[in-house]
Simulated scan of single mutants.
Amino acid sequence: MPPFARFMAPAFAACAILFWTPHADAEKLTLMTGGVTKIIYLPVTLAARLGYFRDEGLDVEILSEPAGVDTATELIAGAVQGAVGFYDHTIDLQSRGLEVESILVLAQSAGLAELASTRVDTPMRTMADARGRKLGVTGFGASTHFLTRYLAQQAGLAGSTYTIVPIGPDNGFVDAMMKGSIDAGMVEEPTASRLLAANAAQVLVDMRSIEGTRAALGGPYAGSCLYAQRKWVAAHPDQTRRLVRGVARALVFISTHSASDIMAVLPKNFVGDNEALYRQALADMIPAFSRDGRMPDGAPQTVLGVLAAVDPSIVPRHVDLARTYTNRFADEANVVSGH
């Protein structure tokens, strides 16, 4: 089911409320992430844990959905003010006549890895081996869905030659890989490291770093970001400014602290039982986080090119990339912080 078909069906029953401490005089805002424990969405969690939203006079409630496509659904339905997900959703939504924009870029990599299960009879070695295989994604319409299709296409495979299986993130994904019920799948950290450490998977395509993403997708990229409906941003510039400023401070924190320092701020359930594994996964991801929250030059064009390659309904000449992001609030935040 395409994302836009579900825009008026809020799915709060499936949500988890992660952080929300009411403050008497603060303005209430609600954000939704496509899986709050994923390292790629860490800046928003840190902004809440470090009190940066409170410093801005904001009372920010953070909700979590299994996949970014669900986050986009709730944003368009007006159930939340901001979404934390992949930049590609802004382009996909605009192609369907829905105006949203990235107001702060969190990561300059896709932050994803395509892993092959080692628990099947004949493990895949490259994406060209996907013919006749089952490929796991977090959900239909999710970024993992279209990027999986793109990688298969680049390997010369038509969409009809393999099967896409939506399995969600985290434990559901791990279970599917461990049991060999899928041949390969695309997932974020720290789940990728859990599977690799258990020798249940091997890397087919690594897009967790900036360099790996560029090699796989052909240019500079924007992965996770904070985005909102353009009409909401236009009507609430002050709240947007303060929201961005809070998350931008978290980006600075990430760039100036070690993985151990960052972990000390996080809830225990984020880190899990294997602290060493999480620490290494986080340390490897830190360089991919943006330092200033600005859209990387050329990234919108790369993302559009990848999307259009697998979805004929997205016609590049009909997409106005300038309306899918703004650097205005990031620039203002950087001036205030001195960066």
Score class of each variant (00 low, 15 high):
Ala9Asp: 10
Pro10Asp: 06
Pro10Ser: 12
Pro10Leu: 13
Pro10Trp: 09
Phe12Glu: 14
Phe12Gly: 11
Ala13Arg: 09
Ala13Ser: 13
Ala14Ser: 13
Ala14Tyr: 08
Ala14Met: 06
Ala14Cys: 00
Cys15Trp: 11
Cys15Gln: 12
Cys15Tyr: 14
Cys15Asp: 15
Cys15Met: 10
Ala16Gln: 12
Ala16Tyr: 09
Ala16Leu: 09
Ile17Tyr: 03
Ile17Val: 15
Ile17His: 04
Leu18Ser: 06
Leu18Gly: 15
Leu18Pro: 00
Phe19Glu: 04
Phe19Cys: 06
Phe19Ala: 07
Phe19Lys: 04
Trp20Ser: 11
Trp20Pro: 00
Thr21Phe: 08
Pro22His: 04
Pro22Ile: 09
His23Phe: 03
His23Trp: 04
Ala24Ile: 08
Ala24Arg: 12
Ala24Glu: 15
Ala24His: 12
Asp25Glu: 14
Asp25His: 10
Asp25Lys: 12
Asp25Trp: 00
Ala26Phe: 07
Ala26Arg: 08
Ala26Cys: 08
Glu27Thr: 13
Glu27Asn: 07
Lys28Cys: 00
Lys28Asn: 02
Lys28Ala: 09
Leu29Pro: 01
Thr30Arg: 10
Leu31Ile: 14
Leu31Ala: 15
Leu31Arg: 01
Leu31Val: 11
Thr33Leu: 07
Thr33Ala: 15
Thr33His: 07
Thr33Lys: 04
Thr33Pro: 02
Gly35Arg: 02
Gly35Ala: 09
Gly35Trp: 03
Gly35Lys: 09
Val36Asp: 00
Val36Asn: 03
Val36Ser: 03
Val36Leu: 06
Thr37Glu: 03
Thr37Tyr: 09
Thr37Gly: 01
Thr37Ile: 12
Thr37Met: 08
Lys38Leu: 12
Lys38Val: 07
Lys38His: 10
Lys38Pro: 00
Lys38Met: 14
Lys38Gly: 11
Lys38Ala: 15
Ile39Ser: 03
Ile39Asn: 05
Ile39Phe: 02
Ile40Gly: 13
Tyr41Met: 08
Tyr41Phe: 13
Tyr41Arg: 08
Tyr41Val: 06
Tyr41Leu: 11
Leu42Ala: 04
Leu42Ile: 13
Leu42Asn: 06
Leu42Cys: 05
Leu42Lys: 05
Pro43Val: 13
Val44Thr: 15
Thr45Ser: 15
Ala47Arg: 02
Ala47Thr: 03
Ala47Tyr: 02
Ala48Thr: 09
Arg49Asp: 00
Arg49Tyr: 01
Leu50Thr: 01
Gly51Asn: 08
Gly51Tyr: 06
Gly51Asp: 05
Gly51Ala: 07
Gly51Thr: 05
Tyr52Asp: 06
Phe53Tyr: 10
Arg54Asn: 11
Arg54Pro: 00
Asp55Trp: 00
Glu56His: 04
Glu56Phe: 03
Glu56Val: 02
Gly57Pro: 04
Gly57Ala: 09
Gly57Cys: 03
Gly57Phe: 04
Leu58Trp: 05
Leu58Phe: 08
Leu58Ile: 09
Asp59Ala: 07
Asp59Asn: 05
Asp59His: 02
Asp59Ile: 06
Val60Ala: 11
Val60Trp: 01
Val60Gly: 02
